[in-house]
Design a binder for these strands. Structure first.
Lengths: 369, 369
DNA sequence: CTGAAAGCGCTAACAT
DNA sequence: ATGTTAGCGCTTTCAG
């Protein structure tokens, strides 16, 4: 009887060891690339692995290593970014909390309508993949969903979390740190939390936009802001307004949007009512800039001849738009990768201090301004 | 000495058992909701769980149950959907194979530029979540990446795979079934494989489009097709052409696209050169329809007055477009959810036959046609 | 440089 | 109805 066709189900270390005529420990060593293994034996083991079609069992390994090589990629927020009304946003109450069982679907559907998240995923996956790690996608838009994320991590289903919040007063970062779970954020939290994050120098980006518009000769300039209860919204406005003021234009008409195309359209309509003669608009993101372009065109204004439009982010919407949007580039993929790097670094030395890495935006000139 | 503060790291079943004064097995039973447990003891255990802050270790559980409650959500394809040239698509060779180390980034970046994938994710997550399961995101655009997916599953890192291919001759489904791994596909594979899948009745959708255009009074109708080496591309064309023929319009100008906005623009340009007088175009997806609208406008044609445009999918691009696109709705979220349901069903009884579920499309009338 | 053996934390027979 | 016990497959001291 040959001694290698005896395994019933999937082969285990034991099977490989038997086939190679060595101990389990030795097989484990060559598989994990531990040095101090006779090259001859290494070769024998490799052959046995190939021959048996062995694949190490992750659960068994995790049980002893305490690592899963999975990380949770969680999109967190209140799920009402562009809801019927946004009056409840700043209040502590979470409007979706009492929603229907699948109220999450509205949130998840909306999240991916924004090209931003696809870029985050891209950046994370491309950093993780060569390292043999994988992202588990999660959404945390209700307190129930947030508990699930915490449980997931506490069960050791993932080694840490990468969280991108769409909402200002997101409680998730706090829950995570309170539970002592490794996490890194995309964007500075509204309330200071001792946690690492990556972010963009939003103000610098807004400054670039202001300078470009002015250099272009525009003089009646307005801005469509992002939601003013999130740092990105606030800073893009502050940076823009400060620069305009410094360059001699202290009064800037503003209309608040919610980072959605729809809200950008509405904001543009409002702006046009009050300031029909404006010659430029800075939208705090590309989606709103696209919305603004649509409305401008409907009002018979040409972009950029009559009104120059500049966006922010350099998302796919910017290049897909007609005319292609001049915009401020946010290196989302690189930032997401850095977020992953920070998390893995933290996993290696759990006692390291929280760090933040701020990226610089860049002006991308296309046709809209 | 109190007997409950003795645990060093995270509490285990043992700790809870001790705190509750019962055996591990009993704790396990109440945690897993197994019946036959005295209500009084149940309560005691629950209290002990709460008190110790116990969270079951997933790896340990997986090791014995052989389940992870994770499923791989893999986007598969060749990564050259809109590359500089698509001449190599039909050949067996994979152009990205010899690419740079991070050639995957181009693929991943592009994948999420299409709103389609966000919808798939949404559908999958919303089905999985209430069932305590989670998707692990993976890309399989090179043979190396495909091997990784197979390994991942063979290691028991996930219970099965949900795969959506962007490419015709995708080898992944075959690899998966050869390895006996549970998988369900989005869309029928180009080559028959014994594997479950969900799909859309593409021909019916195309028929709806043709009928709508004709009913509208259009007579000089062209179509921008999808890639003709994938079933969806073929069937949407076949359904359209057959219906047009049946209704008395046997000759339809066609231009092939690649399901990207850019390719839709190029196709529209070509069509306009040959048929400057056309009065309607059916684009095989919304992204290409958007591209067509842009080009038409640049040529001074109004949509829908001069040229009616109808898309396919009812993606976010359709409603965001100006004018909003009349299109054929593909219930992607529902299809993705069904895909997940089929996989879980298969997990329950591994010997079930492969099934396919075909969804019906619907006409959505907006402003473009 | 290699092997023996002790668990990691949990579930599932099997006893009681 | 509850407790006892035997692993699940792997890594990792500790001997040799």
């Amino acid at each position: 009887m040959t001694d290698d066709l005896r395994s019933a189900g999937t082969p285990t270390l034991e099977d490989v060891a038997r086939a190679a005529g060595v101990s389990r420990a030795t097989v484990s060593r060559v598989i994990n690339g531990v040095r101090n293994v006779d090259p001859v034996i290494q070769e024998a083991v490799r052959r046995a692995v190939a021959h048996t079609g062995y694949a190490p069992n992750r659960a068994a390994r995790s049980l002893v290593t305490r690592r899963t090589d999975a990380i949770a990629l969680v999109v967190s927020g209140a799920g009402v970014e562009s809801g019927p009304a946004d009056s409840a946003r700043a209040s502590g109450a979470d409007p979706t909390e009492a929603g229907e069982p699948d109220s999450g679907s509205a949130f998840t559907a909306q999240v991916f309508a924004d090209p931003f998240f696809g870029r985050v995923v891209t950046g994370v996956v491309n950093y993780l993949r060569p390292r043999g790690m994988h992202p588990v996608l999660m959404f945390a838009e209700t307190s129930r969903a947030r508990e699930d994320v915490v449980s997931f991590l506490r069960q050791g289903s993932a080694d840490g979390a990468l969280v991108v919040s769409t909402h200002a007063e997101d409680p998730l970062p706090g829950l995570l740190t309170d539970a002592g779970l490794p996490a890194v954020l995309y964007a500075r939290p509204a309330r200071p939390v001792r946690i690492s994050y990556v972010d963009l120098a939003h103000q610098d980006g807004a400054r670039l936009a202001a300078e470009h518009l002015l250099a272009r000769g525009c003089r009646r300039i307005a801005t469509i802001t992002g939601p003013l209860d999130v740092p990105a919204g606030q800073e893009r406005l502050a940076g823009f307004r400060d620069t305009m003021t410094r360059l001699g234009h202290p009064y800037i008409p503003i209309a608040e949007g919610q980072f959605t195309q729809e809200s950008g359209e509405a904001a543009m309509e409002r702006l046009l009512v009050e300031h029909p003669d404006l010659d430029a608009v800075f939208a705090a993101n590309d989606l709103m800039a696209v919305g603004a372009c649509h409305v401008l065109r409907e009002h018979g204004k040409r972009v950029p001849e009559d009104v120059a439009v500049i966006g922010f982010d350099d998302s796919s919407a910017a290049s897909a738009c007609r005319p292609p949007l001049t915009t401020i580039r946010q290196p989302v993929e690189a930032m997401a990768a850095e977020m992953a790097r920070l998390l893995i670094e933290r996993l290696a030395k759990p006692d390291g201090a929280a760090t933040s890495v701020i990226f610089e935006p860049a002006l991308v000139v296309r046709d809209s301004a």
